[in-house]
Every structure is written in structure tokens, then in C-alpha cells.
């Protein structure tokens, strides 16, 4: 039953990153400014707060082409909007729990706290995630047309 994607070229993971404006997006800026190189597999979605990342966006990304989703927010206690990151943490935990129970690898979804000064951590996270997702192979969802 399992079909593989018709593409023959080497698998390059595609990762969508939802980054909060105040911390992780700024940290990503810093990674750029300080010339930290990381794999070109990431596509950034700019949001004001990690607390505004909806599960439907994450699922939609995984179903329509992404192999991994990174959600980056402020460290606990540092949220500009007081507690958006705590709310995001619950949502992501629920989503990962559900996928895990269904046997869909929940490790395609990463939640990371990356502050505005952690450009290096941002670059390292993207590098690490790209490698981890590369090892996992293409996302199950997009390999099956009938999902």
C-alpha cells in the first residue's frame, strides 16, 4: 500500500519554523547577523507570539509538504505577552501526545525556547533538526495521497 514520493533526488527535508517575534525570530536574526550558517531547509513563519501558533497550522504543514515543524518561543518566564509560551507548550504537548498515540512520529514537531541572544542556539537547533528529520525520512503524510 505504501507509496513513495515519485521524486528520485536525494531527500532534503523541508522544515517550517513558527518563530515568535520577540525572542526566537530575533535570535534567528542574530544567527544571521553573526553569520551562523545553518542548512537551507528551513522556512520561517513570523508570528508575534508562540502562543499564537495553532495546531491546525502545524498539522496542515505536515500534511501538505513539511517534514518537520519547529516552534520557537521565549524561555519560560520571558514571554512578552506574559504566558503565551506556556500556552503554546500545552498545545504542542497535546498535539505530540495525539500523534504519538496514533503512531505518527511526534518528533517531527519540535518546541524550543530560544532567546533573542541565542543566535547560536538557533543555528544549532536548525542544524540538529535538519539532520534528525533527514534521518527520519520524508513525512508519512505526504507520501500517501489518500490521507
Amino acid at each position: 500500500m505504501a507509496e513513495t514520493a515519485p521524486k528520485t533526488e536525494a531527500f532534503e527535508p523541508r522544515i517550517v519554523a513558527f518563530l515568535c517575534h520577540w525572542c526566537t525570530y530575533t535570535g534567528a536574526d542574530l544567527a544571521g547577523t553573526t553569520r551562523q550558517q545553518y542548512p537551507p531547509n528551513i522556512r520561517v513563519v513570523h508570528l508575534m507570539c508562540s502562543g499564537a501558533v495553532d495546531v491546525v497550522y502545524v498539522l496542515k504543514a505536515l500534511m501538505d509538504g513539511a517534514d518537520g515543524v519547529l516552534i520557537g518561543g521565549c524561555h519560560p518566564g520571558d514571554c512578552h505577552y506574559e504566558s503565551g509560551n506556556y500556552k503554546a507548550r500545552r498545545r504542542v504537548a497535546i498535539l505530540r501526545n495525539i500523534l504519538g498515540q496514533l503512531g505518527i512520529p511526534e518528533d517531527r514537531i519540535w518546541l524550543r525556547w530560544i532567546s533573542a541572544s541565542e543566535g547560536k542556539k538557533f543555528a544549532e537547533t536548525v542544524t540538529e533538526m535538519t539532520e534528525a528529520i533527514r534521518a527520519m525520512g520524508p513525512c508519512e503524510f505526504k507520501q500517501h495521497w489518500d490521507v
Binding site: G51, V53, V56, Y81
Partner: peptide
């Protein structure tokens, strides 16, 4: 203060905010 917490909490997106409506987000995504 336009943080978007309400938009995430609302299951059917009756809560939205200008600049990042679900339509914008899904289409951009």
C-alpha cells in the same frame, strides 16, 4: 495588545487578528 492568544484558543477561529488571519496563515504557509 495583539498577541494572538485568543486566536489560538478559539477552535473555529471566530477570534482573529488583523495581519495574521487563519486564511493569511494557511495561504502563506
Amino acid at each position: 495588545r495583539a498577541c494572538g492568544a485568543c486566536t489560538m484558543a478559539c477552535p473555529n477561529k471566530a477570534a482573529q487578528q488583523y495581519g495574521s488571519s487563519p486564511k493569511q496563515m494557511l495561504m502563506a504557509l
